[in-house]
Every structure is written in structure tokens, then in C-alpha cells.
Design a protein around this nucleic acid. Structure first.
Lengths: 158, 158
DNA sequence: GATGAAACGATCATTTA
DNA sequence: TAAATGATCGTTTCATC
């Protein structure tokens, strides 16, 4: 894992802003951070190069895309060994419904956040893509009423 | 909930691209989608106005920000009534560690994805911010080994 | 939906603190 | 070493077809 990087208050303002709006013009971002545009550009490039900023993307609404049913699938993989785990991860990530995948502590636990078209397509996903696999010992399904995103991620105030 | 929106293959290519890279120049996006830049700009604006695109943001690395310990907290809130649930949600979303919050089916379940500085700060979070509250009946903690993001979200192929 | 021109922002060499 | 300036270059954007 990477070392912590030294970030001053200007970097933090840039990060806080960009986490909420990746498409803000550099000029406006500079104004928000209180520095000149050229300096701001340097800062953002440096944050990318040092790995603080991993990437960017837009968020799409699963409902408007015809995937109104979101769920968390709690999966037990057995035996919990790399030759079985790695292909399982690849398989899950290749599913179009998959939003996020977590590998958790505990002897054998994965959590999958999925966005499905309907209860029927969720059932198909569980039966045909998960429990049909030999290494999948158990799938527990929780539907999602609502999901919220946290605010911008900032370093702990030391 | 919002109706499904009609999206043609050009829209889908735009969405697939933007989900991986919100900062792509409109000119390049247009080339990737096979349309003129002005048309592409119209499309993207329409996707925003119709609510298909909810927002944008950069992803930051929790490790480099000094938050190397991620966990999922499974929380039972009792009694599970709005006068207690709404302030609980507000409280969780105001925590700097919170990345995501899910309200799930089941009588009383929330799941919180957090990024903490250390085991000690995670302990403090659980004890002081969660179990210290009257409505929090139970907190179960799972550490996260690894987390993956799914690919671009696209409509089910009808 | 494309074209082409005007306006604006991004970018970089240079200068300054 | 880090930031600002200012000119150039590119993209965005809009009227028009």
C-alpha cells in the first residue's frame, strides 16, 4: 500500500470540490481554491500522479436506466482458496448488474451490490450466476430501500 | 421513481465512456460516440436534464489520504420508526468516515461503508458514534480486504 | 444532426517571489 | 521551490444550414 502523501489545505479544497464535481472548469476550481489557474492545474496533475486521485466518472441513475431494483448479496465461497476465489471475482465483475464487490473478513465472505431490472432478473442472477457455481456455498439477499453517498473523503484531522 | 428514458446506442456509448472518465474533452467524447461535438454536447446536456446523469466526481484513494482501514458496519436501529431513523441517517452521513449508507429490507437494518484511520479510530466510531446512541440496538463489524467497482451501468438488453 | 465561426478556457514558457 | 503572468493554442458553444 502507498504511503500517505502530504496535502496542504489548498489540496484539500481541491479534492473536496472535485469529489462533488469532476467537470468543474479549471478556472473555477482555481478560484474556489484561492490560487491561479496554472497553479491549480499543476496541483491537480500532481494529485493524479501521486495516486491520490484514482479516476473520475459520472454517476448514472439506475432507475432511469431500467434497473430499479438494487440489492446486496451476501455470498459464502467455499473452499476459500485463491484458485476458486480469483475466478469468482472475475465472474462477478463481468456481470452487468454488479455495482460493487467487497471481499470481507470472516472465513469466506463476499458482498455484492447489484442493480437489477426486476425481481425476476434478480432471481435469475442469484440462481444462474451465483448458486449454480460449485464454489458458492450460500447466497443471502437483502433488497435496498435507499442508498446514500458520504461526503468528500478527507484525511483525518491529525 | 422516474420513468425509464429512451436511450439509443449513441447515448449508451456516451454513458459508458463518461462513467469511466468524467473529464474526457467533449471533442474526444464525440469522436468515441461517432457524432459531431455539438451534437455530443446536446446529448450530454439532455442526459443531465433528464436525470440519467446524476452528477460527477473524482475517486480518491483512501489509503493515500490516511484512511487505510475500510469496514462495513451492519447496524440495527430500534424502534425502526421515522422519528428515530431520519436523525440516525443524518448523523451517519455527517461522519467524515462514511462512504456509503444503505437502508435495507429486513425489519431494521442499515449498512455503512466506512474508511477509518486505524483500528482505534474505527473502535471509537463504533462506540462513540453508533452504539452510544439509544436507537442503535446492534452493530456488527466486518473489515474490508478489498473493494472492486463494477463496470459502466447500462440498461438491461431488452 | 452537422458545420463553421466566435468566445472562452486550458496550457505552458517565462518571470517573480 | 512554488506560484503568477500572459501569450498561444485548443475546445466549447451557438447560430445557421
Amino acid at each position: 500500500m502507498r504511503q500517505s502523501v502530504e496535502l496542504d489545505p489548498v489540496d484539500l479544497r481541491i479534492l473536496a470540490e472535485l469529489q462533488n464535481n469532476a467537470r468543474i472548469p479549471n478556472k473555477n476550481l482555481a478560484a474556489a481554491a484561492g490560487i491561479a489557474p496554472s497553479t491549480c492545474l499543476d496541483r491537480v496533475n500532481r494529485l493524479r500522479e501521486t495516486g491520490v486521485i484514482l479516476g473520475s466518472g459520472v454517476t448514472v441513475d439506475p432507475d432511469t436506466l431500467g434497473r430499479p431494483l438494487q440489492a446486496l448479496l451476501y455470498v459464502r465461497v467455499q473452499p476459500h482458496r485463491r484458485p476458486l476465489v480469483d475466478p469468482f471475482v472475475d465472474h462477478v465483475l463481468a456481470l452487468p448488474e454488479t455495482r460493487e464487490l467487497y471481499h470481507l473478513t470472516g472465513p469466506d465472505d463476499f458482498l455484492i451490490h447489484v442493480a437489477a431490472e426486476s425481481a425476476q432478473s434478480l432471481q435469475r442472477l442469484v440462481l444462474d450466476e451465483l448458486t449454480a457455481r460449485d464454489e458458492v456455498a450460500l447466497v443471502h439477499t437483502n433488497l435496498i430501500f435507499q442508498r446514500w453517498q458520504g461526503g468528500p473523503l478527507l484525511p483525518p484531522t491529525a
